[in-house]
Design a protein around this nucleic acid. Structure first.
Length: 671
DNA sequence: GCCGGTGTTGAAATG
DNA sequence: TCATTTCAACACCGG
């Protein structure tokens, strides 16, 4: 009686066939034609910082998905259409005679905005929209509702709320077959090529999708352009035609994005196939799964031999279902033969990690669009960071951001490029750029260093760098973790800090990670590997690495900077301002806070206490600009002056003995 | 409103 | 060598 369904299944956060509740709903409609669509959205190509490694992972995942679709039915594949979904989908509805649009809900702020627009447009033309939660263990909408609309800020709150939501559904099997994307299901055309040809033809004449250049913004508006420090080296040509250059709806390439594939240096390979084989490998190790304790896993490994599961990129793109992971872990633990008390508990265990991801999604959902920034963000404590976002009178973010003070800008640049002079930080940042991944505790180290630990630079800037380079970047977890580490939200014990040498020293493999990513330090002995500036000059010579020449001098004094940052944390905490406070919205909070603890504004303008401007500027000049040899003399950089050693010349007698001293000294720090 | 327990992942001292 | 305690500059939650 009712006419058969013609369904667009819109892939976005769910590049998989297994355990896809949304895809199941699409197939439950028993469609005569199913169009598996991906919209190659220019908002992601131009208006979002995305590096080569993440695009590479996405492209691989799309290709893998397409292959898997074809293996279910040789007459189908992923149909990549180039354009903005809000403009494109309504056209597809008409030209393909669509009855239903089905997709997995995307809980991010941009996703929600885009989807509600698309939903409204679909409604106008009588297309039914079916959206299904599948990206998280629990639906953030429901969790927040159960929590009285309040953002979920602690694990215990989340656990309490979800106890009432019942069990996580068991994962679904992948479908066994799929209807083809045929324009006319009764026609006898079966070949994929023929079907694609007809589809492509059906899109002829659409205004502004054809024609070179339609989608290419000027470089100053393209966040990935090389002009703005991004990876795009040439003009894109992925928008010259709606269905791709060969009119076959193929997945775009890095080249078509104007990016150099040889820059995709990561060993992390995308796709559902990879994800499932990785999961299988993990689950085989019952002891590893059962005894997993995140804080005990080492950050000192490259992604190929990570101490954690490295499933985050796959979960982020939906190559791996989070519910499948959850249940495989649960089932695996039942096979554990050891003592029951060896099985780790939430939150440190594997499933706890997944719950954290849910927690951040719930926080993001309740806070809304401003989750990734300080201004207007009600859960985010206001601190008078350097290099914050800037806003105009209407509260619109000013892009590009006006330059900040010189010292902070040069520190941020050194941080991004991995030449702060602190090997632990530098190796992690270089690993990030190269591999698109660092261990969670490595992220903690660099995030604390940039913000409340040493540099006092806004977490917004750090989050942006991660956004560009991390393959597993997630709109909820990333800002959430930056707020956590900067003591802006979720966490507040600012006196707990990560030492730049003490922290990595606790873990296995960290020194080798430094040597791997900072080859200048290859021959530096373990004793000085995290603090080469403390090595006596002859040790440096022997290692073939003179600090200040072959490897940068430290850009600040760890201890001094830490003490200053703690004073500022204390001031900010006592003031108790949050992002939604009137003073913050009006841009007055910073001046008030600075006045209160006597920090000149802008930095360097005057004599702040403990603000050794001269030294820092020296560093900025000598390090950021030219890697001046400067042997001996200043090889121990600002920062290493020991309280008792006075300024001895060369490292000369910076003898061994001193190694013991710092700790003795540190312990004196109480009254 | 007070109190004590707790909070995924600090560092140093202690046993 | 390792696990536990202490220190301690916080804030939230529940009783």
């Amino acid at each position: 009686m009712t006419k058969p369904a013609r369904v667009i299944y819109w892939f976005r956060t769910d590049l998989r066939l297994h355990d896809s509740p949304a895809l199941k709903r699409a197939l439950d409609l028993r469609p005569a034609s199913l169009f598996p669509v991906w919209c190659w959205d220019p908002n992601y190509v131009y208006k979002h910082r995305v590096g080569v490694n993440r695009f590479n992972f996405l492209i691989q995942s799309m290709n893998d998905l397409s292959k898997n679709l074809t293996s279910l039915n040789p007459s189908t594949k992923l149909l990549v259409v180039r354009g903005e979904p809000t403009e494109l989908l309504p056209e597809l509805f008409k030209r393909w005679n669509i009855t239903h649009l089905v997709f997995e809900s995307d809980p991010s702020a941009y996703g929600r905005r885009r989807d509600s627009k698309v939903e409204a447009l679909a409604k106008q033309v009588g297309v039914q929209v079916v959206k299904v939660q599948g990206h998280h263990l629990y639906d953030p909408v429901e969790v927040v509702k159960k929590n009285g609309g309040k953002p979920v800020l602690t694990m215990s709150t989340l656990q309490k709320v979800i106890r009432e939501l019942g069990e996580i559904p068991r994962p679904l099997e992948p479908p066994e077959n799929l209807p083809p994307p045929k324009l006319d299901p009764s026609s006898s055309s079966e070949g994929l090529e023929q079907i694609l040809g007809e589809l492509s033809e059906s899109l002829e004449g659409l205004p502004h999708y054809q024609g070179k250049g339609a989608w290419i913004p000027p470089p100053e508006l393209d966040l990935n352009s090389s002009e703005l420090g991004g990876p795009r080296q040439k003009e894109t040509d992925c928008y010259t035609s709606l269905s791709g250059q060969d009119r076959d709806f193929s997945v775009p390439t890095l080249e078509s994005l104007g990016m150099d594939p040889s820059q995709a240096n990561t060993p992390i390979q995308g796709g559902e196939t990879q994800a499932l084989s990785r999961l299988e490998r993990i689950i085989k190790d019952v002891s590893y799964v059962s005894k997993f304790a995140k804080p005990k896993t080492t950050p000192g490994k490259s992604s190929e031999e990570a101490s954690t599961t490295l499933t985050s990129p796959y979960i982020k793109f939906g190559c791996l279902s989070v519910r499948r992971f959850w249940w495989e872990v649960e089932d695996c633990k039942k096979k554990f033969k050891g003592k029951p008390n060896e099985i780790t508990q939430t939150p440190e265990n594997l499933n706890g990690q997944l719950l954290f991801r849910d927690m951040y999604a719930c926080a993001e959902y309740a806070v809304g669009d401003v989750f990734g920034q300080v201004r207007g963000n009600k859960i985010c404590r206001f601190m008078d960071w350097y290099l914050p976002n800037h806003y105009d009178d209407q509260g619109q973010k000013i892009e590009p951001r006006p330059p900040g003070d010189e010292v902070s800008e040069s520190r941020l640049k050194a941080f991004r490029e991995g030449r702060t002079g602190f090997p632990w930080i530098d190796c992690l940042m270089r690993q990030l750029v190269k591999e698109g991944w660092i261990h969670h505790l490595g992220r903690h180290s660099v995030a604390a260093f940039l913000t409340r630990g040493q540099c006092w630079i806004s977490w917004e800037r750090g989050a942006e760098i991660f956004d560009e380079y991390l393959i597993d970047w997630d709109p909820c977890s990333n800002p959430g973790n930056w707020m956590w580490l900067s003591c802006s939200a979720f966490f507040s014990q600012y006196f707990r800090l990560y030492g730049l040498s003490s922290f990595p020293s606790k873990y296995e493999g960290t020194a080798d990670l430094v040597r791997k990513h900072c080859p200048e330090l290859k021959k530096m002995p373990d004793k000085y590997i995290f603090e080469p500036f403390k090595a006596p000059i002859e040790v440096q010579r022997k290692a073939g690495c003179i600090v200040g020449k072959d490897y940068p001098s430290p850009m600040l004094d760890e201890k001094e900077a830490k003490e200053e940052c703690m004073r500022r944390c204390k001031a900010a905490f006592s003031k108790g301002l949050y992002g939604d406070n009137e003073l913050v919205l009006k841009g007055k909070a910073e001046a008030i806070l600075r006045k209160e603890h006597g920090i000149p504004d802008p930095r360097g303008g005057g004599e702040g206490k403990g603000n050794k401007k001269g030294k820092i500027t020296d560093w900025a000049k000598s390090n950021a600009v030219q890697p001046k040899p400067e042997q001996g003399k200043r090889s121990n950089a600002p920062g290493t002056k020991r309280s008792k050693g006075e300024e001895q010349e060369e490292g000369e007698e910076q003898e061994e003995g001193e190694e013991a001293k710092p700790s003795a000294k540190r312990s004196r720090n109480k009254k």
